[in-house]
Amino acid sequence: MNDDPDILVDRDADQLARSISDQLVSTLAALQAQDRVPAVVLTGGTIADKVHRAVAARADDGRVDWSRVELFWGDERFVPADSEDRNERQAREALLDHVDVDEALVHPVPADDGTLTVDEAAARYADVVRDRVFDIVMLGVGPDGHVASLFPGKPTLAVDDRDTVSETDSPKPPASRVSLTFPALNRGREVWFLVSGSGKADAVARALDGDDVTRTPAAGVRGTEQTLWMLDEDAAAQVPDVQ
């Protein structure tokens, strides 16, 4: 596993989103040029939404064949499929509805349809992602240092024998969620942390300093080939030697 992260800093969230979208399109195009179907783990949040919209705006350039990209989610809120809280809904509205995806290659976490429990949803998603190696894992970071739905101090941080967990008491609503575990996230060849805003600066600095994962879960995810932190200046404000 690569223990030396790369750090890229942009002026603000808008410029950061453009840089991430450039990186994503270039990486996917390069993988497809090798006749591969890239496997990508998506994240949610404000910066992810900006990235998705930036990618969609340039979809007509033809560099990426979106019907040959396989998509997963690092975590999901266990809510009805049409809820605005769904990371899947956010990604579809910003990106997937605007590109020619193959739905057979799009793997959302099961939604709360009134018949499943959150534990059952996690188990079903485990069947989907079991032993999968991801080309790109994109992650946001919370002000508390959480990634996906792995939160500080939670017993889910210690799970190492399965690829998904359920969380029923998230400190950030909604309370019920499904998340990939550290073992699944750490199968990413490239892990990209996408972080903007001064409210995340302390968590970013702690993670890059190798803080204990029970306090800063973001410190526990690394790519097997590359770990890339893509930050705006506010998020990077407490990281030495990057301004």
Rank of each mutant, 00 (worst) to 15 (best):
Y125H: 05
A126P: 10
G145I: 04
L194A: 13
R130G: 05
T156F: 06
D127T: 07
T115Y: 14
V128F: 13
V204W: 00
A148N: 10
A123S: 12
V165N: 08
P171T: 05
D119R: 08
I136N: 05
P143D: 10
M138V: 09
L157R: 00
P174K: 08
A123I: 06
K200H: 15
L185V: 09
V221K: 02
P108R: 09
D209E: 14
R177T: 03
A148I: 09
T164C: 15
R189S: 13
P152E: 04
R189F: 06
V221T: 04
H146T: 00
D211H: 11
L185R: 02
T181P: 12
F134Y: 15
D113E: 05
V133R: 10
G140V: 02
A175F: 13
G142I: 13
F182P: 00
V133I: 09
R189H: 15
T117W: 01
V195T: 05
G223T: 08
R222V: 00
S198R: 12
G210V: 08
G114E: 14
R222Q: 03
G140E: 04
R206C: 02
V191Q: 03
A201E: 05
S176N: 14
V129G: 04
V159F: 04
A126M: 04
N186I: 04
A219K: 01
A175N: 11
R132L: 14
E120T: 10
G223A: 07
H107N: 05
R124P: 07
D160N: 13
A184Y: 06
S170H: 06
V204P: 03
G199W: 08
R215V: 15
L105T: 11
P217R: 03
P155Q: 01
V159E: 00
L139H: 09
V128M: 13
G153M: 11
R189N: 12
S179F: 06
V129N: 11
V133F: 07
W192G: 00
D160Y: 05
D202H: 15
R215Y: 14
R187E: 03
F134C: 05
D112Q: 11
A203R: 12
H107P: 07
L116V: 10
P152W: 00
L180D: 04
V191W: 00
F151I: 05
T216L: 10
S176R: 15
L194N: 13
D163E: 14
N186D: 06
G188R: 01
R187Y: 04
V147I: 08
D119V: 07
L116I: 08
G210P: 15
G140Y: 02
F193H: 13
H107M: 02
V147Q: 01
S196G: 11
D209M: 10
T214N: 14
N186S: 14
T168H: 09
G153C: 11
L139T: 10
D163I: 07
P110C: 08
G220H: 01
L194H: 15
T181H: 07
A201Y: 15
A219E: 00
D144H: 12
V118A: 14
T181I: 08
T216G: 07
L150H: 06
V213L: 12
A121I: 13
A201T: 09
V195H: 05
S196I: 06
P183E: 06
A122Y: 00
M138F: 05
R222L: 01
V141Q: 07
A205E: 10
A203Y: 10
R132I: 12
P173D: 00
E120N: 09
